[in-house]
C-alpha cells in the first residue's frame, strides 16, 4: 500500500484558537516546586543532622582559635578574631539545650544569623553542601514556630533546619534556647 502523506487536518477557527491557548498555557506552566533546590550546609550535632542556609555560612575555622572569657554565660565558649572583628564563639549544643553531643567539636562555623553581627558556632565536622527541595523547606518552616524545623528527606532521612536568627533572638530575649 502506498503511503499517503497527510497534512494537518483542517480544523475550525474556534478549535484552533482553543488549541493555541492550551499550548500557550502548557508552555507557561511553572516548573514544579520540587525542582527548585535550596542549598544548605549540613553538619552533625551528636547523632542528629542539622542544616543552615549555605549563604549564611561565612567560614569554617579551627576551634583552637577561641579565647575563653571567664564569667561569660555558659553558652559562650569564648571569643575569636575574624576579619578584623572580635566575635563570640557559641556552643551550639548548649544553645539547643544540650541536645546532641557525640564527640567534641573541632571546628567553628562563622555564620551571619542576620542580626547585624557574625557569630561562630562549634561543630563536630566541616559541613557539606546539600540541595533540599524548596517545597520541603517551606513546608517545614511553616509547621515550626521555633528555631528548629524538622525535614524528612526521601529515604526517611531526617534533617533539622536551623533558623539562626530565631536561635539568636530567643537567646537574647529569654536567655534560654
Amino acid at each position: 500500500m502506498k503511503p499517503v502523506v497527510r497534512g494537518p487536518e483542517p480544523v475550525a477557527a474556534e478549535v484552533k484558537a482553543l488549541l493555541d491557548r492550551r499550548a500557550e498555557r502548557a508552555r507557561a506552566r511553572p516548573r514544579l516546586e520540587e525542582e527548585t533546590v535550596l542549598w544548605m550546609a549540613e553538619f552533625p550535632v551528636g547523632e542528629e543532622q542539622y542544616a543552615i542556609p549555605l549563604e549564611t555560612l561565612r567560614a569554617a575555622v579551627p576551634l583552637k582559635m577561641v579565647t575563653p572569657v571567664p564569667l561569660s554565660p555558659p553558652h559562650v565558649i569564648g571569643i575569636l578574631r575574624f576579619q578584623g572583628q572580635i566575635i563570640s564563639a557559641l556552643s551550639l549544643a548548649s544553645l539547643l539545650g544540650g541536645r546532641g553531643w557525640r564527640e567534641d567539636p573541632a571546628v567553628l562555623l562563622v555564620v551571619d544569623p542576620g542580626v547585624g553581627r557574625l557569630v561562630a558556632l562549634d561543630c563536630e565536622q566541616i559541613p557539606k553542601p546539600v540541595g533540599i527541595p524548596a517545597g520541603l523547606v517551606e513546608e517545614a518552616r511553616g509547621r515550626s514556630k521555633g528555631a528548629v524545623s524538622e525535614i524528612v528527606l526521601p529515604g526517611l532521612r531526617q534533617l533539622n533546619l536551623l533558623d539562626l536568627r530565631k536561635l539568636m533572638d530567643r537567646r537574647a530575649a529569654t536567655g534560654r534556647p
Binding site: 579565647t67 572569657v69 571567664p70 564569667l71 561569660s72 554565660p73 559562650v76 571569643i79 575569636l80 578574631r81 572580635i86 566575635i87 563570640s88 557559641l90 553581627r117 557569630v119
Partner: peptide, 23 residues
Amino acid sequence: PVELRHLPAYQGAATLARGELVP
C-alpha cells in the same frame, strides 16, 4: 562582642602580637 558586653568585668579585648586575643 554583643553577647559579652553586659559583663561588667571587661573593658574589651585586644590582640597580642601573635594574634591571640586577651580580655
